[in-house]
Simulated assay, not measured.
Amino acid sequence: MSLNQISVPLTKEEAYKLVDAVSELEDMALSAVAYEGPDGEHWVFEATCDEKPDIEKFNTLAKQVLGDDVEFEVAPVPDKDWVAHSLEGLKPVEAGGFYVHGSHDDAPSDENVIPIKIDAGQAFGTGHHETTSGCLAALDLYLQDNTPEAILDLGTGTGILAIAAAKRTELNILATDIDPKAVEVTIENAEINGVLDQIIAETADGFDHPIFAEHGPFDLIMANILAGPLIELAPELIKQAKPGATIILAGLLTRQAEDVIAAYTAQKTTLLAQSEKGDWSILTLKAE
C-alpha cells in the first residue's frame, strides 16, 4: 500500500472543523488529525490516504467547511518498518533519578535509579520529549522536600508521570486523560511497571467528573499538555489544589511561558521555578 499525506496550516478551530468533516466521509482518508505546529502559532490539519489524495475533493470540502480556499500540500509517506524506525534513537533517558527505557533496552543495573519501562505507542510520553523529562526532574525536586498525600497527573498520556510518582511514594495516584486510548495505555504501563494497584486511571473531559472530588483536593498537580489548554483550564485546575499545593506545568514553548504564568498568577499562584529544555519550559508554581 502506497500512503500519502495531505496537510495545511490552519487555526486550531479550522483544523478541527476540517478533521470532523473528513472523518464523516469514509472514502476520503484513512485518518485525519489536528495538532499544534512547530511554530506554536498555527495548527496543522493532516490526513493520511491509501492512494494519491483527491485534491479537488479536499478543496471543495475545505471551501464548504471553512468558507475559503486553502493550499494543501501532498507528500508520500516513505515505506519503512515503522516499529523499527520508532525505536531508532529511543535510547534510555535518565531524568530526576528515573531511568526511562523501552522493552528493547535492558533495565539499569544501578540501584540508585528507578526504572520505568515505556514503549513508544499510541499516547504521548516516553520520556524522550523535553517536556516529559523536564517534568520528571521537577517531580524529583518536589519529592525531595515534600511528602504529599494526594497527587493528580492531568493529561496522563502514557501514564509516565503517574507511574514515576507511584514508584517514589506509597500513594494512589489519580491519572486522567480526555482520550480513552491514553487511559488504556496508562493501565497497561502501570501493570508492566508493577504499580497497577496505585494508579487510578480515568477518562475525564472536565473537572466536573466526580473522580476529582472523590480523590482531591491535591498536594501536587502535574499537567503536561499544551499552552492553550493550560491557560483555559487555569481557573478550574486551581480549584483542585490544596492551599500551598505545588503545580507542575509543561507542554508549553518558552515563548508561551509568559502567558501561561500570567493565567496562573491571576489565580493567586506564585511561580517557584522555570526550567528550560530545548524550546520548551517547565513551570513549578505554588497555590495560595
Rank of each mutant, 00 (worst) to 15 (best):
M1D: 14
M1L: 15
L3S: 07
L10E: 02
A15E: 05
A15S: 13
A15N: 06
Y16D: 14
D20G: 13
M28H: 02
A29I: 02
L30H: 05
S31D: 00
S31A: 05
A32D: 01
A34L: 01
Y35Q: 01
E36Q: 08
G37E: 14
G40T: 01
G40N: 02
V44A: 09
E46S: 14
T48L: 05
C49R: 10
D50E: 14
E56W: 13
K57A: 15
F58C: 05
N59D: 14
L61W: 02
L61Q: 00
V65T: 15
V65A: 07
E73T: 15
A75H: 08
P76C: 06
V77C: 08
P78W: 01
D81T: 01
D81N: 05
V83K: 13
S86F: 14
L90Q: 15
A95C: 09
F98S: 06
Y99V: 08
V100S: 12
S103A: 12
A107P: 04
A107G: 10
S109T: 15
D110P: 03
D110T: 05
I118L: 09
I118W: 10
D119Y: 03
A120L: 02
A120P: 12
G121E: 14
A123K: 04
A123T: 07
F124P: 10
G125A: 08
T126I: 06
H128A: 12
G134P: 02
G134D: 00
A137W: 13
L143G: 00
L143Y: 04
Q144E: 12
D145W: 08
E149C: 14
A150W: 00
D153C: 08
G157D: 03
G159L: 04
I163G: 02
A164T: 07
A165L: 05
K167S: 07
K167W: 07
N172C: 11
N172Q: 13
A175C: 06
K181D: 15
A182M: 03
V183Y: 11
V185G: 05
I187E: 15
I187D: 11
N189E: 11
A190M: 03
I192Y: 11
I192T: 15
G194T: 12
V195N: 11
L196F: 10
Q198D: 13
Q198H: 13
Q198G: 05
G206E: 08
G206D: 15
D208M: 04
E214R: 14
E214A: 14
G216N: 04
F218N: 04
D219H: 10
I221D: 01
M222P: 07
A223C: 01
A223S: 03
I225E: 00
A227V: 01
A227G: 00
L233N: 01
L237H: 05
I238F: 04
I238K: 13
Q240T: 01
Q240R: 03
A241T: 00
P243S: 13
A245E: 06
A250D: 05
G251Q: 02
T254A: 09
R255G: 15
R255Y: 10
A257S: 08
A257C: 06
A257Q: 00
E258Q: 13
V260Y: 00
V260I: 04
T265G: 04
T269N: 11
T270D: 07
L272E: 12
A273H: 12
S275K: 15
S275T: 15
G278C: 00
D279C: 11
I282C: 08
T284M: 11
E288P: 09
